[in-house]
Write a protein that binds this DNA or RNA. Structure first.
Lengths: 345, 345
DNA sequence: TTTTAGCACTCAACTTAATGGAGTGCTAAT
DNA sequence: ATTAGCACTCCATTAAGTTGAGTGCTAAAA
């Protein structure tokens, strides 16, 4: 479709704009060593590229900037992942060397180093629960009508919730319930817990317990979906303000507000696709970040995707650098978790 | 010290500046119904007030704005807490009506309504552990060398940590340890746990267990102070951007960066003083928020302060309104928690 | 002695005009 | 097919002028 020369020029323009954040003129391109054409020739090609939708002009007498389509072409065909520096690699390796972190510390640290290396906003979504299985369940009475339910998974995650105990359920009934649950439910994937309880256990439970209805209600309250939902870790949210195109408080506020209600973020990452994902501008289907790009990758344990790490930055992002960092970090994080969860020393 | 008229004028200037965010001129004051003096008289008084340090002048031909000292005088002597609207009160009451929230939900909700009502940034510091006592402790082995330690307090808070089990400690030793701990430590205030273990239990433990040294190490790891530290909830962090004096991205970034590393916040609230605290500008001893004020109050359970709620906004803050909201909310939150934790229905 | 009218002065903010320069599109020559 | 050349456009910057809100000071009035 595009001629070799057009590709070369598009490449040069995008690179230059990413670097300097200013519209690129024909003379700038012409002066580059690797381009042997006069500015007039470049101008003609630029006009064509604009007509094809790869470039835009802020105003008539300005240079060109890449359009969203231009960035997309750049990401799909032109960008080459940059080599991480030796320093970066050792920093990351050092981070994952210690195997005694709690899981939450790992996500925090990962987010921190991710935003530190890129100077953009980092996003780390914790464990998807796809493969987490029940290790232990415990219900601890607090008062006559409240209790804490605690669920421990095989990956060491602990979730807890304060629940209401209906009137007239004595403590020994609760103990019975817990013992029963532990004997029957250990090893079940978390997301099947609720169904399992409803489908298979209710008849058995009914035999076992006197006030069956109340017990079921406790369980229902305990395993509502929202509690199984994962945490979002953000670091470097203010980094976007260092970008010249975000000198405007209004634009920044929109983005930060979007990040603050982070349930929204989850849905943007919900289709867990393999490999590096790059979503540019309006591809994010979210007005607040229509001038931003998101680069993300999933991390794995046992070949199963268990979470996502990603970067939010301006569409004028250093794609090459960020892609390699996200890729590298996702893989190293997977390796670290693999070790973290393995039974071996 | 100040004459009645000076006080009246200072009051008028601060009120006006808080409302309109613009330097206040002598004519503006003179035109107010409740002031019967000409602009020239006001001017003379304003010059005196400036000399005394209560007012400042951005430049020679501008009106006056309150200095930090001016705000301090205003807060100490002039401001009158404004009445909450009926709507605000019902909103708050509705929020606390439901008694089955988990504690973390309550803090989240409180922060949300606090920033919603004020349009500033809200800060809610969770439970201080002063009066939290151990209700239950549990150590659940995950693999051969890791386990999850779970601590439940009498207030229903659950803390957990993945810990490393030293080589050669068999499972039944751990079970022994847990049983022993539960029998000995329940009812101890959390912040004394560590000391208690070191001081009184070690001899008994030694008798009980074979590899005593390893067990102690597990406990040491489990009860490090940082894990007992409290969570910080922030809402409406971007609200500061709606203030005209914070149109500048640089200033905003400084503040948000300060908020992002929220360990710092804790230390600003550490002296738990009774009543409403107002810290203006540099009184916060923190460069990043030297143009901000913090209004805070502690909330209580059983007369014990257990946490803090507060508001961060510009020094040009609606003190009257915010003080009443913070005060009201702290008291209502205390009441709600009292109910939440009480044994009665 | 206190208050105020009056006036000269200051200074930021806004308006307008002029200038420079980076960049374009088009055409004609190579 | 390429490029030199030129007229044109439009933003950015600077300079100068204008406005107006507000001050400080002084002298007159209360």
């Amino acid at each position: 479709m595009l001629s070799t020369r057009q590709i070369q020029i598009l490449h040069a323009i995008v690179d230059n704009y990413i670097r300097h954040a200013e519209p690129v003129g024909s003379r700038t391109i012409s002066k580059r060593e690797d381009v042997g054409y006069s500015s007039a020739t470049i101008r003609n090609e630029m006009a064509d590229l604009e007509e094809l939708g790869f470039l835009e002009q802020p105003h008539t007498s300005a240079g060109r900037i890449p359009s969203q389509k231009g960035y997309r072409y750049y990401v799909d065909h032109l960008v080459q992942p940059s080599q991480l520096t030796f320093g970066d690699v050792t920093n990351i390796r050092k981070l994952f060397a210690d195997k005694y972190y709690a899981f939450e510390q790992i996500t925090q640290q990962t987010a921190a180093i991710l935003s530190g290396l890129t100077n953009y906003t980092s996003i780390v979504l914790g464990h998807e629960v796809i493969d987490a299985r029940l290790k232990h369940i415990q219900i601890i009475p607090l008062t006559t009508d409240t209790a804490v339910a605690i669920i421990v998974t095989n990956s060491g995650k602990v979730q807890n919730k304060t629940i209401h105990v209906p009137d007239g359920v004595p403590i020994n009934e609760i103990e019975k319930l817990v013992n029963f649950l532990n004997s029957k439910l250990v090893g079940i994937p978390l997301h099947e817990l609720r169904m399992q309880i409803q489908r298979e256990l209710s008849t058995e439970l009914q035999k076992l317990m006197e006030n069956f209805q109340a017990a079921i209600q406790i369980l229902e309250n305990t395993f509502t979906q929202e509690d199984i939902e994962e945490k979002v870790v953000l670091k470097g949210t203010t980094n976007i303000m260092m970008q010249p195109e975000f000198r405007d408080v209004e634009k920044v506020k929109e983005i930060l507000d979007f990040l603050e209600k982070n349930e929204q973020l989850l849905k943007h990452f919900s289709p867990v696709l393999p490999g590096i994902q790059v979503r540019i501008g309006t591809e994010n289907r979210e007005n607040a970040i229509s001038n931003c790009s998101i680069i993300s990758a999933t991390y794995h344990v046992d070949g199963q995707p268990v979470g996502t790490i990603g970067i939010l930055g301006p569409t004028r992002m250093e794609y090459g650098k960020v892609i390699s960092i996200v890729d590298f970090l996702a893989k190293d994080l997977s390796r670290a978790l693999e070790k973290f969860y393995s039974n071996k020393v």
